[in-house]
Design a protein around this nucleic acid. Sequence first.
DNA 1: CCGGAACCCTAC
DNA 2: TTAGGTAGGGTTCCGG
Length: 779
Amino acid sequence: MDGTQKRKGSPDQSSSAKRSRNENDSSSDGGSFEKELAAFREDTVAYRNPTANWPRPPVPNLNPSTDKIVFQQLELDHYVGKHLDGMPGSKAGPGPIIQMYGVTMEGNSVLCHIHGFVPYFYVPAPPGFDHSHCSEFLDGLDKAVLSDMRSNKDSISHAVLAVECEMKESIYGFHGKRKIPFLRITMALPRLIAPAKRILETGFKFASFPERCYSTYESNIDYEVRFMVDTEVVGCNWIELPAGKYKVRSPATIDDSYKTGVQPKSYCQIEVDIAYDEFISHTPEGEWSKVAPLRILSFDIECAGRKGVFPEPEKDSVIQIANMVINQGDRDPFIRNVFTLNSCAPIVGSHVLSFPQEGNMLQKWSEFVKRVDPDIITGYNIVNFDLPYLLNRAAALKVQKFPFLGRVRDEKSTISNTTFQSRAYGKRENKVINIAGRAQFDLLHALLRDYKLRSYTLNAVSFHFLQEQKEDVQHSIITDLQNGNDQTRRRLAIYCMKDAILPLRLLEKLMCIINYMEMARVTGVPLSYLLSRGQQIKVVSQLLRMSRKQDLLLPAHKAEAGEEYAGATVIEPSKGYYDIPVATLDFASLYPSIMMAHNLCYTSLLHQSDLKSLKPDEFIKTPSGDHFIKASIRKGLLPEILENLLSARKKAKDDLKKETDPFKKKVLDGRQLALKLSANSVYGFTGAQVGKLPCLPISQSVTAFGRMMIERTKELVELKYTVENGYKTNAKVIYGDTDSVMVKFGVESVAESMELGREAASYVSGHFVKPIKLEFEKV
DNA sequence: CCGGAACCCTAC
DNA sequence: TTAGGTAGGGTTCCGG
């Protein structure tokens, strides 16, 4: 009997678990969670042999020439800059560029090395090199590399685009640890350069890079061209590696992890190589919108702190680590255990692992993580507390084998600090821990981003969302409980396990994984970016997807503080108490629809000099005085991105109405929400103060159109609904903000007001370009 | 007592 | 190898 293959708990098990949760066990007595755990007694396999569930399902036999591999992508890692596989002298040009981690439908872990083109690489500058040599060097290098490439018939020919000189710490041993001048050489495929030149002719401002640009560390270059490959924008899609196109590396096991010279880089069950243009990324629709059986590990640690002092890893022991492992989509975890320092009385339905020595406990926990091989690691504040504490504690105790928690062999997990600052999220200081191939999803970070709450303690959050609270154990008595007997440590263990399960409950209740995965799929970024990075990367990724379809290059723009521009109009409110109905009319998705209606985009923006060569009916002038070419001549990327997003949203909403399965309903709702959010953030991106690719003509045109439209709406309504035109009273717009107007029609009944509101909405819509639409919202 | 700057919060 | 926007109300502090 194999417990690992079982996705759903047995009917008894899940129904009894449900029952115990529904008994409204607000658990101040500290015993209710024990009852809940006891409900798992029937899970006899796990109970008799608690480690049987740890490994992933075995890999089916694989014949690379006849079998395809299909997996859902989750995480990405870049070779470039880290591994320097493209260094001249080894092999500049084609090579592995990206590591893609994922999970198959059978629940096997996959690492796929994507081979492509190294977009830039570094070489030490020749002695006496200065900027006057750049051009000369470029010529020589181009010829040398090209001839080298031609002699290799499998290679892809390419061109060098730029040479820059910058000071970098030497990567070559013989230079020692000091900064020396390096040349950074940027390359691109010729097929990408040709279409980019074509854009230049129609006035695409940002594509107007010189054929070659070079600079030194003394002078800045105007344009730096960088290209990104498709593989970076797959965002949790299902990836298909067709039969005969990939190569399998021999499987590795944890036990040979310390051998050297073993080919596979990781502990993944399937490790393969494929070229960047030979795999298929399936658009997440229909069959391809399913979610792989991801393994999610939630854990929590307890430390023996001293009185009145926050625990310090150099001094204070880790005394317990509780773990819950669940398959995405299941109701209950299939692994429930707790690692304890010193003995602990048994806990029904759970696996207690006791260790007399702390170092040994940490070592075994590290092995547990590798055996279970989770795809996602979650918990509450794990990134800033639990993980760093464990790593620092293990270092203090000199547990050498501990910090290897990732999937890549011999890659040590380390802690670094980052600050993330944005207007939207404020300033956040975070720690970063590298765990290769596993997505860290810290629930605290997700809540900070998505919800505005008075308190973010696990207790407050659990009560708010689950009407459930933590076990009642005060911080101050943790050390006393640890120093008591196996019964007091048992009480602590129950507390610790509850803190490990609560994040999983919240994850399910708030549909975090589903919603975040949908967002990742819609925008094309890896799951972890959604918590670690801002809004811009999502728009960049969508732009990359779209521009690749049109063979356009996205330029790399240096982020600098830009100018401000005028925003929306707020109609001065007519203050007062209204005892008659007031109708509210709203523009649906105002800013996205303005961009679509008027074809506002980087690729459609015209310069003064372009206007002479165009007929007056081929372009428009926006209220802010900027010019854009019409969609009939050249359709912009942004309008197309927005159309895709909004039509996909409409489809998701239609499917949502038809769907009856509650799980699929959740997925679809998450999807339509993600699509709406993405559409709304495109405008903000073009006006970003410190932006990746700001374009004020677009953003100020959008707001200018918006201001014009709200004024015009007020005017139209107040001119049409008058006594002269046979209405009871003159209508009055009493308030409005950005995309809405509130109209007092002067009628007494709600029904009449609604009727007039609907009529006015469609009347006003008729005065604007499609797809701009004014809707009656409410009375 | 007033105005301005800095800051925070919210609407859209 | 980073970081969505503007409008507008309110509070606090400081200087004149």
